[in-house]
């Protein structure tokens, strides 16, 4: 579920990055898209590793695991957004200082 949410977030940010270029440039959405993409790729490898170990690629059978993973996925998205926001504020602050 974490992989699904991160991949979805990566897709949305990539589409937005290319569809609304001026806004994306102002908001540095490329950075967010790259961060989510990197994490989604890494979890894809994790999924394959689980598959080779005899587990499902993405656990969707056990509701408690799905709920836990979904909550983790949301926290991951928030962390990504927080890192991006801090980067954005820092960049703006340094620009103003110069």
């Amino acid at each position: 579920m974490t992989l699904i949410l991160t991949a979805l977030a990566a897709t949305v940010t990539i589409v937005f990055r290319f569809a609304k270029q001026k806004t994306a440039e102002k908001l540095r959405l490329g950075l967010l898209a790259l961060m989510y993409s990197g994490a989604a790729l890494m979890w894809t490898v994790d999924g394959f590793a689980a598959m080779f170990a005899g587990e499902p690629f993405v656990e969707l059978q056990n509701p408690s695991v799905v709920a836990d993973d979904a909550f983790l996925g949301i926290c991951v998205l928030f962390l990504g957004a927080a890192i991006w926001a801090v980067g954005l504020i820092f960049k703006k602050a340094t620009k103003k200082a110069v």
């Binding site: 974490t2 991160t6 490329g30 950075l31 790259l34 961060m35 989510y36 993409s37 990197g38 994490a39 790729l41 890494m42 979890w43 983790l72 926290c75 991951v76 962390l79 990504g80 890192i83």
Partner: peptide, 17 residues
């Protein structure tokens, strides 16, 4: 810079996991 963002971003999010 793109590779750096992908690696650091992925690492940070995986760290949380």
């Amino acid at each position: 810079g793109w590779l750096n963002a992908m690696l650091w971003g992925g690492t940070a999010l995986l760290f949380l996991e």
